[in-house]
Each structure stands twice: as structure tokens, then as C-alpha cells.
Design a protein around this nucleic acid. Structure first.
Lengths: 342, 342
DNA sequence: ATGAAAGCGCTAACAA
DNA sequence: TTGTTAGCGCTTTCAT
């Protein structure tokens, strides 16, 4: 005969409350779930027993019965990056509003880890997922397990049948580089991330379009691809760039964290910003306004991106059949000192 | 008669696998849980059926049966702060190693929210919790619901029977301020957070001890208390400090994020660091080495703090009766340009 | 307005 | 080595 699986001091169950209140478990359940059919007097009696016994609902049992975990999986390449951190907060805000909790998973943009976290969906530990990983990884997900309830945020392939929210990356990069060109720069370097990311390919295209649109042909070595987005990576990339025979007079980095590292790297290389080299970043994290010189950047509506992604997912969970559209939010160029030659 | 609670396309259950393989559910369960009693041939047969049917275990059911959620609650005042972000990563690493997931909750250091998240423990949605919130909040927790399985990280009251890990804050602050005094400073201001935090009170004590130890009596207005830890708060506090009749020649801020804001604020006030004002922070977040000038700070072993907290919690879950000790990890002064007068 | 009872899908004691 | 079976604690249908 089975016994208690846990050796926790005995926990009060719904039937204990029912016995104490002299009603059935069904009635207790109704009170607990706020069903209006219960007679006020009965409700009071039940609540009195709940308090007397210190009863707490066991959500493990409820979850099994209702077949939902009320957990939303969020797959993030790097939670330490302030950009992603802010998006996660947006997701969290909406999730909480709807009585969901967020299970945050740091994938390191690794396809294997991503895949293993996705298992959580199939094992019913999470009801749905929001994926911020490279579109290449997303493709693998769809191949391996189609039909799972998830949405894409920031990174997505419009050609794939997964709801998404993001910005127009090509256009945003175009705006950033054009701003630099209007300051008189002709040699604008691009510090880009790994091009397994769709956003990297799109921003590169924007950079190319802006340059060629002004009659400048970008040399292949004007573009540097780096492996991560941390400060130090940007720092080293900038120093390497400055040691070339023909160093650029302006640098566009595809992330503020990189750009802030670039500022440090230029300092080490003895370059003054913006006098010797202008710098533009991407994202507009809180720190961008605090560094010296303050960083010109493309503002992404991070919180909104997260909130929208969460809403799309909840919508998908509520109406699995209904087609959910892709959404693009507006970006904005924020000009600060790091790019002002005048 | 009850029906399926969810309208999900029918999901394959363990009994379907059992039927398909021609064995009992118990045998399937044994295979799934890697029990060695099963005959290899049987195991293969079962696995073949698992694959054929695309079966995935339903962890909702397992959780109910085994009476555990395998979720660890982590209560953080501000996930956006890089200091906490790094600790959370440490927690996450250990949790994953032991097949737990982390449920991250941003409390904003608010007692009410903290309390409501704590409910998750009583409702069995989480097996244990790690709390990084003010010791004042922790006290409230103990009053309201004693006996719950949790541990304290960074912030704790040694007098309370909850396992904890942290550093010697008084000593660390003492070291930081002493370093400043050895550079010849006599008027060292303290930018402190709200003193509902034990660490704030302890660091203040370290600041006082260092000053008085060198024959300096700190004036009350040398200490400024601020409400948050974000960059902008530090920025404004520094500017306010500089507008006084007798501005300090050195500033000790109890967090790197504040200190980085201070650097920006001093710049705005036309002060050069470290020439006019020296600055020391606390935590040694990644950014501290990248700002201009690079920030002198107290390094906390953030990742270790998180990992240790997680281990303490797991230990407590494994052996609820056993007394778990409080632990202090070592800090370290990291001297960079922001405090080097020479 | 309330109760009786059937499971949700799994684990584990016990029997064979 | 394997099968039978009793629950884990809850929600919900159906009957009253």
C-alpha cells in the first residue's frame, strides 16, 4: 500500500477542511475557486475552517487536474545582458497580471540547450514559451517538435508560422549609419555579432544600404564579427580596429554593451570620442546615458517587446487555432555625445 | 462523469505506452526512472514504444505523486542589477546540476510582494526558496510563516535560525575606506542605500570605524542615504554632494551601479576623477573595469555566493532536521584608476 | 446549493 | 523480474 511520498509534517488537505467545516470537498473547492453558487453562510463556514487549519491549496494537485502548469518558459541567450534583462521584465509583468509565472532559462544561444529546455514544454512543465534565440535555432525547434505553443521575440523569421514581435532591424541600422554619414564620416566600421542571428544579417544590410546609398562602397574588412556581446569583446574589437593601416573614423556596434566596450577600447588606443572616432550603439540600455561620452544609440522599446511577446503567447494559449500575426514595433535614434563631431 | 480538463489534442500517457509494449504501467515507470531491476529486453521493448508513440512524461502528474515541484524560488530585490544577475546565475548553475529549475521573482525589496511570493512555497509550487531581500523583510517572513525551507543570501541576520551565506560587510567597507584614507583623503563621503538593509548598516559601521580609527570624526552629513541602486540615483547624489559648501574629496558608494552613476555626476559637476574626487564602489561588476576612469571597488564573489546559497538550500531540503551553518566568503579590494591620486 | 464519485497520469508497496 | 492496485489532492460532472 502506498504511503506518503514526502516525509514533510502532515499537510492539511482539502478533505481535512471539508471534514472540519462539515461540508463536502466539492463545496470547499467551490469556495476556494470563488464560485458564486455557494451560499454565503457556507462560504463563511468553510473559510473559518481554512483559517483554523492553516490550509493552503496544493497547486501540484490542481495543476494535474486542470492540466496546466501556469508557467511560461522564457528562453534567453544571456540573462546578464541588460537588454535581455529588460525584456524579461516586460514579459514578467504581463505574465503576473494573468497569474502566470516565468521560468527563465539561459540558453547561451546554444541549440542543444535550447532543445533540452524545450522538452519542458512537452513534459507539461510549462504551458508555453517565448524564444529570443537565433532564428537558426528556432528553425531547428520547429523541425524537431512542431505544433508547440511558443512565440518569437526580437529574433524571428517572418516566413515561419510562429507569432513574433520585433523591430525593423535593417531600417534601424540604416538610420544609425546615415546619422554617422551626415556628420561627415565616410569610413564607418561595423562591429557585428555572429551572423547566425537574423538581426545581425539585417543590421549589416542596413549598414550596407546606408553606405551605398551615399555612394560609398564598404570594404569587406570594415565589418568585424565578434562572438559575444559583452563589454570586453567590444573593447578588444575596437583596439584591433584602431591598429589597422586605415582605421575607421566612426564605429557602429550592434549592441550597447559592445559599444560601451568600444569606448573603453578607444580610450586605451589613445583615441578621443567623438573627436577622433564617433561611436553609435544599439538598444539604448540605461547605462548608455551614463557613460563618458554618453552613447548615441538606437532605442528599442525593450519593455514593450517583452510585454507584447507575452500577450501574443497568452493569446495563442487561449485560442490555439487562431492565427496570430507578426508585429513590428518602432525604434528611435537617440543622439548623444559619442557621435557629435560639432 | 469528469472529462478531459484540457482540450489539447490527446496526449500519450504511460498506459498507452504500456499497452503498446505489452507490459504494465509499473514496468514503463521503472524504465522511465532508470531502475535497474528491469530486464534489458523489456527495457528495449518499452523504449521502442516510447519512441513509436512520441511519449513524453507528464511532470505535472509526477510532481503530484512525488510531492515535489523541483522548482527553487529565488527572491531578488532587482533582477536588473548586474550584481544580483550574477548571483542568480550561480544559483541557476547549481540548481540545474541537481535537476531543479529556478523560479525568479523580482520583489523590489517590498515586504508585501515578498510575502505573496512566499505563498508559492506553501502552495507547493516551489520546494524551497533563496531570499536576497532586506533582513527586515526576512524577519517578517519568519514571523508570518515559520518552518519553511529557505536560506538567506548576502543579506541575513546571524541571530536568526535561517542558513545564510554572505560576506563580512563591515570589514569590506572598512578596507575600502582605509584605502581612501591612505591616499591622503580626510573627508570621505558615504553614499549608502536605505538602512532597512543590514548590509547598509554594516557598511556604514565599517566606514565609521575606518575614519575614527584614523582620528577623523565623520560629520552626519557626510553620509547620504539613497532609495535605489540605479545609475541615475548615484549620478544625482554625487551632484548634490558637490554643491555643498564643503564637498568631499572622496566618495565611497555601497554599490558599483551607484558609483558608476557618481562618475557621471562628477563629470557633470566639472570634477575630475580621481584628481578632484576619488571614488570607490562595491561589488566589482563586469562594468567596473570598463568605465572611465576604471572603478576601484570591493569584489564580492557573486557567482560563489549564489552557488553556495543554492547548495545550502539543497542540503536543507535533503536533511530538514540537520542544522545548516552560516557562511562568510572572502571579499577583496580591487584598486583601479578611480581612487589613485598619484 | 450541495454531495458523491470519477478520474488527471504517475509512483511505489506488495504480491506473485 | 513483472503486474496489480491504491492513492497523491484536486476539479468537475451529474444527481439531488
Amino acid at each position: 500500500m502506498p504511503q506518503r511520498a514526502s516525509d514533510t509534517p502532515q499537510t492539511v488537505s482539502i478533505s481535512a477542511v471539508a471534514a472540519h467545516a462539515g461540508v463536502s470537498v466539492a463545496t470547499v473547492s467551490r469556495v476556494l475557486n470563488g464560485q458564486s453558487v455557494v451560499k454565503p453562510a457556507t462560504r463563511d463556514k468553510v473559510m473559518a475552517s481554512v483559517n483554523a487549519l492553516g490550509y493552503r491549496i496544493n497547486e501540484l494537485a490542481r495543476n494535474l487536474r486542470t492540466a496546466e502548469s501556469r508557467l511560461l518558459l522564457t528562453l534567453v541567450p544571456d540573462v546578464g545582458n541588460p537588454f535581455y534583462a529588460e525584456i524579461v521584465r516586460g514579459i514578467d509583468a504581463v505574465a503576473r497580471e494573468h497569474n502566470y509565472f516565468v521560468l527563465l532559462c539561459d540558453t547561451g544561444a546554444d541549440s542543444g540547450r535550447e532543445q533540452s529546455y524545450f522538452e519542458l514544454l512537452q513534459r507539461r512543465r510549462a504551458d508555453g514559451a517565448i524564444c529570443l534565440d537565433p532564428d537558426t535555432v528556432q528553425h531547428a525547434l520547429i523541425e524537431a517538435s512542431p505544433g508547440l505553443p511558443w512565440v518569437a521575440c526580437c529574433e524571428f523569421d517572418p516566413g515561419v508560422a510562429v507569432p513574433y514581435v520585433g523591430i525593423d532591424n535593417r531600417r534601424a541600422a540604416y538610420d544609425a549609419v546615415t546619422h554617422l554619414l551626415m556628420q561627415g564620416h565616410r569610413h564607418v566600421a561595423l562591429i557585428n555579432s555572429d551572423e547566425t542571428w537574423l538581426y545581425a544579417r539585417q543590421r549589416k544590410q542596413g549598414w550596407i544600404d546606408a553606405l551605398t546609398g551615399r555612394g560609398i562602397t564598404p570594404e569587406p574588412d570594415w565589418c568585424v564579427n565578434v562572438a559575444g556581446l559583452d563589454y570586453d569583446t567590444g573593447n578588444r574589437a575596437a583596439q584591433a580596429l584602431m591598429q589597422r593601416a586605415k582605421p575607421p573614423t566612426a564605429i557602429f556596434a550592434v549592441s550597447d554593451t559592445l559599444a560601451i566596450g568600444v569606448l573603453a577600447g578607444l580610450r586605451t588606443a589613445g583615441k578621443r570620442v567623438p573627436h577622433d572616432v564617433a561611436v553609435v550603439g544599439f538598444d539604448n540600455i540605461a547605462l548608455a546615458a551614463q557613460v563618458e561620452p554618453a552613447l548615441t544609440t538606437i532605442a528599442q522599446p525593450m519593455r514593450e517587446l517583452g510585454m507584447t511577446a507575452a500577450r501574443l503567447l497568452l493569446q495563442r494559449l487561449a485560442q490555439p487555432e487562431q492565427n496570430v500575426p507578426g508585429l513590428l514595433l518602432a525604434h528611435q535614434l537617440v543622439v548623444r555625445q559619442s557621435s557629435q563631431t560639432t
